[in-house]
């Protein structure tokens, strides 16, 4: 016996320590986080939209909207887009498992859906980038 420490040492040899997570545990953790984020967004969204009834002729709402289309908020929209994509696609993945599809290849299914998510996110980035840079494309 080398030593006996009677103190509570930091125990990282536990399945709750992220280094010990496997694919499914990460998928589930991010599903929870993105779910909470989307719920928070939804509440904000309802507050913002319902503010259109305040003030006369929607003047305040116009002001608010012009604030929310500033580059900073447009960049935040990209975060929202990422959360929506992740939550949707991982949700479909879990539904497929419930339907008996792909349970034995869950990691492949996960990374397949993540590839779709990345492509869709990049598409969103390409669409919103001119607006962030303050150069909205001219419409014919």
């Amino acid at each position: 016996m080398i030593r006996t420490a009677k103190t509570r040492e930091r125990n990282l040899n536990t399945p709750l320590w992220p280094a010990n997570y496997r694919t499914g545990m990460w998928a589930w953790t991010f599903h929870r986080i993105s779910g909470l984020a989307l719920s928070g967004y939804l509440i904000m969204h309802i507050i913002v939209i319902s503010s259109s009834t305040a003030g006369s002729q929607g003047v305040n709402f116009d002001k608010l909207l012009s604030q929310l289309t500033q580059p900073f908020f447009l960049a935040l929209d990209l975060l929202l887009w990422a959360a929506v994509l992740y939550h949707t696609l991982n949700g479909i993945r879990v539904l497929l498992f419930d339907a008996g599809i792909g349970v034995r290849n869950q990691k492949v299914v996960f990374w397949g859906f993540m590839a779709v998510a990345v492509l869709a996110w990049i598409a969103g980035l390409v669409l919103i980038f001119p607006f962030i840079m303050g150069r909205p494309p001219v419409r014919a």
Binding site: P15, R22, T23, G24, M25, A27, W28, V94, F97, D98, A99, G100, V103, R104, Q106
Partner: peptide, 26 residues
């Protein structure tokens, strides 16, 4: 069950436990 697949990863006999759970759900 939240389909976390921890059971399948943990199984020392390499059983896909989640498959059985999903079959029971159906």
């Amino acid at each position: 069950c939240h389909t976390v697949f921890n059971c399948t990863e943990a199984c020392p006999k390499k059983i896909n436990v989640t498959w059985s759970i999903e079959a029971l759900k159906r």
